[in-house]
């Protein structure tokens, strides 16, 4: 019986009196894998302890997830707006940089704040950055960003589904693109542009030379 409700396994821990960080006591007799597991856990613990210090003074423990501190949301929105402004001026590299900063800002949000909010912020930033990469014809980056965007928000994110599909198509990965767009259509229903992209991929797969309608679709979509 490994765990009982009234007992626990005492672990050889020690605390640094200055930094208050916890580590394994030097006289520990734990086995290799146990030591590794404990080390990882203590690293997490110390990181969490440090991040708890960032709480605003009256709080000693993380407040309930809602309501959210609006400061960070405002910063993220600002970075996204700057990115969008650059994008409109067709300065896609600069736009991508702003989006990157925004993504970093959104992901640096303390872990106890709502994950749903992080998903919302990150999915649009990633999707926008994918779009900027597409203009720069950096297809692999665009594909990765769009995939990450879908990971952050699967449903109601047709643009990201489209952008990865398109990037895969541009890289000539037709089978992958077909599979991806197929999945996207399952999730999003018959979304018009996505369905069009799907048909185009089918055409390319059949003929491999039916490049006629491609240019038009690209301009229309992007």
């Amino acid at each position: 019986m490994a765990e009982d409700l009234n007992t626990y396994t005492h672990l050889p821990l020690t605390m640094d009196p200055q930094s208050k960080s916890i580590s394994i006591h030097p006289s520990s007799t734990l086995s290799g894998p146990q030591t590794r597991a404990l080390e990882t856990e203590l690293a997490h613990l110390n990181a969490l302890h440090r991040s708890l210090h960032s709480l605003d003074p009256p709080h000693v423990v993380p407040p309930p997830p809602i309501p959210v501190n609006p400061k960070r949301s405002a910063q993220v929105t600002k970075l996204r707006d700057s990115g969008n402004a650059e994008y409109k001026k067709q300065r896609y590299a600069q736009a991508a940089q702003f989006y990157t900063l925004g993504i970093q800002m959104a992901l640096a949000r303390p872990l106890w704040e709502p994950s749903q909010l992080v998903r919302e912020e990150v999915h649009s930033l990633l999707s926008n950055r994918a779009q900027a990469h597409m203009w720069l014809q950096e297809w692999p980056e665009a594909a990765v960003d769009a995939e990450a965007s879908v990971e952050a928000k699967r449903v109601g994110n047709a643009k990201a589904w489209f952008r990865r599909g398109k990037s895969l198509l541009e890289m000539g990965r037709l089978e992958e693109a077909r599979e991806w767009v197929g999945k996207g259509l399952e999730v999003e229903g018959e979304e018009k542009e996505l369905a069009e992209l799907g048909r185009e991929i089918e055409r390319r797969l059949e003929g491999k030379s039916g490049a006629g309608g491609k240019e038009g679709a690209y301009g229309e979509k992007a």
Partner: peptide
């Protein structure tokens, strides 16, 4: 056999 392995975090907390 218990359903879960040892509860490392619980052990750390109680050890502290």
């Amino acid at each position: 056999a218990p359903w879960f392995g040892p509860h490392l975090q619980r052990n750390v907390y109680l050890s502290l």
